[in-house]
Design a binder for these strands. Structure first.
Lengths: 184, 184
DNA sequence: ATCGTACATTCCTGTGTTGACATGTCGCTA
DNA sequence: TAGCGACATGTCAACACAGGAATGTACGAT
């Protein structure tokens, strides 16, 4: 929120829209959180109510302290790598459902990755050439991350489905062999 | 937890160790959560206390209902893609700190990705050839995801740092030109 | 003039998550 | 045999988060 306000003053409602439209991919937030956080930030002096508009609108702006805190967070606080992926967690237990269903799961992951990749391409077309040099660059860099991630996800899921298919084949062969042995 | 118990009975303490050792990368959990969840699962009939050992040890085992629920979750509940990456969120606001610091941030991301990649390679060496066919396969698939993710992260961060460096150059040139114009 | 929609905020409930604290047992070894 | 370290479970307070309900205002179109 400090980041968004650093680009100019906005109300809680404005910020909410921004989260829904452009930031939901990297940091979803609900309105309860948002308004609560605005209050907290105001109490800490990192933001301030700059103006009150119609409909009880309170326009917030970032303070110098807030800007300093933002810069501090950006460069000095070590980023925490996102863990906790239920998509990956399931992979660990995929042996519980047999090779067929496991392969299906991985194939669906691949499809999904392709779908998300396409959506990101659409966004890129849409935002192309908007904003000034610096803003465009960093937006572009973030988008590129999504593009690479979804591409990697697709490749991986397809590769994994292939590995499972190989195991399936192997098992089928063994089974056949065992059947022959019994027949002899 | 149902997944872990599907491989055989274990106590809360055992599960805790497993989370710390092998699952912390995809799904960290604290002991308070763990014991609370075990109680909840027992109340719902998805797990059952199979035996009581020394030191008050309670060995849990998965029930048929639990196994069914696990299978249900694995194949029918749509996986939620992990969003919320503070690493990526920062990128959006990197124009607040200037090109130098921004480039530094991205370069550190690249280093970090290389480091994590190496750690995963170490884990792969360590676990190679453990477990039966199916278990090894799915563990391997999960590990491969980490490998590909960290590799993509490194490539991306290096590429992004390059883009920022280009912008830096461009700005320096403009500045120089402006200086010349003033001098003339 | 009025009615629907978008604007705008606040509060509430339930759940997930973390971290700390409390409590106690068993087995080994100095 | 005293004590340490690993084993083992349980509880609590604080906070983050999601979803929704309640409330009201202003603007634009018919």
């Amino acid at each position: 929120m400090l980041g968004l306000l650093s680009a100019g003053p906005a109300s809680g409602y404005d910020l909410l829209k921004t989260f829904e439209l452009s930031l939901e991919n990297v940091w979803p937030a609900t309105q309860s959180q948002l308004y609560a956080e605005l209050g907290r930030l105001a109490k800490e002096g990192l933001v301030r109510v700059a103006a009150e508009g119609p409909r009880g609108r309170k326009e917030y702006e970032i303070t110098e302290e807030g800007r300093a805190e933002l810069r501090h967070w950006l460069v000095e606080v070590p980023p925490t790598m996102t863990r906790r992926s239920d998509m990956l967690l399931r992979v660990f237990f995929l042996d519980q459902v047999g090779t067929g269903a496991a392969r299906g799961y991985l194939e669906r992951l691949a499809e999904r990755a392709v779908h998300e990749h396409d959506q990101l391409l659409g966004i890129r077309e849409f935002v192309i050439g908007q904003g000034d040099d610096a803003l465009r660059l960093y937006g572009d860099i973030a988008l590129e991350w999504g593009l690479r991630l979804t591409a990697a996800q697709r490749d991986w899921a397809e590769w994994a489905a292939g590995r499972v298919a190989a195991l399936e084949q192997e098992k089928a062969l063994e089974h056949e062999k065992a059947g022959q042995a019994v027949a002899e």
